[in-house]
Structure formats: structure tokens, C-alpha cells
Design a protein around this nucleic acid. Structure first.
Length: 216
DNA sequence: GACCAGGCACATC
DNA sequence: GATGTGCATGGT
């Protein structure tokens, strides 16, 4: 008995409700959050973003003008603050040089070319690029993260050795090619991953317990 | 005190 | 091409 991805999606949506992602107010805030949350608990990222907000720095030109040392101190709670300072500045330089700091201009580009350009920015990898494209630009691309790999390898939907692109491709082939579906499904996956499919899983209470393959 | 969190780039073999 | 390592804070 195998379960279609659409069934996983509908089941989680019914049990957990709409997640209303991304947890950010503006497209620029989402871009910043996507970089800050790399390998980091979201609650830590929230503190960093609150610092930027209180200093009225959630703006491409203002953030670019801020000295690296000051930016690093403000985003300190998000961890890896030195490397993330550099990554944020790399993204800002890209945005300012190519689109005059205007995300609307940047998002007017077609999905595939823009994805390639984002990946060329040092510090933006596939998950960060896709998060920006899906949640800030609202383009139809599926985001793969550690939870996605963990949950669906445990469920034997994908193989252990599948790479980012293979997993993404699998999801996009088996789901409606639709921004809202990709948005909601990824958010539901993170929810399930955070609460039940942890390194030490709590399968008994997981919304997807009924879909677990029989283990010997 | 150990473990974990919505990655990514880089060194080394 | 595969594998290992540095980056860092804050919550459980």
C-alpha cells in the first residue's frame, strides 16, 4: 500500500489546518528570513529580525549602508552571524546592482533564469533560492529541506541517496504545479518535522502515522 | 551537558 | 566525485 503525495497533503491540511506561510510581513523580510534561517531554529531568527525592524533596517538600501560589524551584532541571535552578514550583503549587492534594489523588478524575471542567478550569489543555495522564489516571489517551485528528506525517506517515498534536485523533481511531478499547493505543503512538512518527525521521532502521534510503511 | 535547529561553502582525499 | 568540517546562538 503506497500513499500518493496529494493524499499526504490533504491529510495534513485537514488535521493541522492552513499554515499561512511565510511568517514575514513583506517580500524583503521573507528574503532576509530565508538567509537567516539557514540551519537555525526559527525562534532565533525572529529575534534577529525584530532587531532589524526596531532599527528600521528592513529595507535594501538602508541594510546595504549598514556597516558589517553593526549588522553582525543585530543578527547575532540567529547564529553564524559573521557568515550570515556576508551572505546578506552578497544578496543585497546582487539586488542593488541588477534591479536597483527593487524586488518587484527582480521578481518580474522568469522563474528558471532567476533561480540560476540567485544560485550564483555566494551564500544562496537551492533551499534558500527556492524559498525566496516561492514565498517572496510567489512562483511555483517546491522547497526541499531537511524535514522533507527525513520524513519521506522514513516513509520510503524517496531513497536515502536522492539529492536536492531529485527530491524536488519527484514532488513537482506528483503534485499540481501550483504556487499555493507548494506553499502550503512545504509549511505542513515543516510543522510535521518540528513536532513529530524529529531525529527521535514520535510516530505514535504523527498526523501521518497511518502512512508509515511497516517496519521489521 | 548533549543535542538540535527550515544550509552552504570550502578543504581534503 | 565523495566525504568531512567550520560557522554560533538559544531552547529542550
Amino acid at each position: 500500500m503506497t500513499t500518493s503525495l496529494t493524499e499526504y497533503f490533504q491529510s495534513a491540511l485537514q488535521q493541522l489546518g492552513p499554515q499561512s506561510w511565510w511568517p514575514g510581513e513583506t517580500p524583503f523580510e521573507i528574503c532576509v528570513g530565508a538567509i537567516l534561517t539557514q540551519n537555525t531554529n526559527w525562534t532565533n531568527v525572529e529575534k534577529a529580525i525584530a532587531n532589524l525592524k526596531s532599527h528600521e533596517l528592513l529595507d535594501p538600501h538602508r541594510l546595504w549602508a549598514l556597516p558589517d560589524l553593526e549588522l553582525a551584532q543585530l543578527i547575532r541571535p540567529a547564529g553564524y552571524f559573521n557568515i550570515k552578514t556576508k551572505r546578506l550583503k552578497n544578496f543585497l549587492q546582487f539586488l542593488l546592482e541588477n534591479y536597483q534594489g527593487d524586488l518587484t523588478q527582480m521578481f518580474a524575471e522568469r522563474l528558471e533564469p532567476l533561480r540560476e542567478k540567485l544560485l550564483s550569489v555566494k551564500g544562496i543555495g537551492p533551499e534558500t533560492a527556492d524559498s525566496i522564489l516561492l514565498y517572496a516571489a510567489q512562483k511555483p517551485i517546491f522547497v526541499v529541506d531537511t524535514y522533507t528528506k527525513r520524513i519521506f525517506t522514513r516513509h520510503q517515498v524517496i531513497s536515502e541517496e536522492a539529492d536536492y534536485h531529485e527530491i524536488q523533481d519527484h514532488f513537482m511531478r506528483h503534485l499540481p504545479d501550483d504556487t499555493q499547493t507548494y506553499n502550503e505543503f512545504h509549511a505542513l512538512i515543516v510543522n510535521v518535522g518540528k513536532h513529530w518527525c524529529k531525529p527521535k521521532p514520535d510516530c505514535e502521534h504523527c498526523p501521518w502515522r497511518g502512512y508509515l510503511p511497516d517496519l521489521k
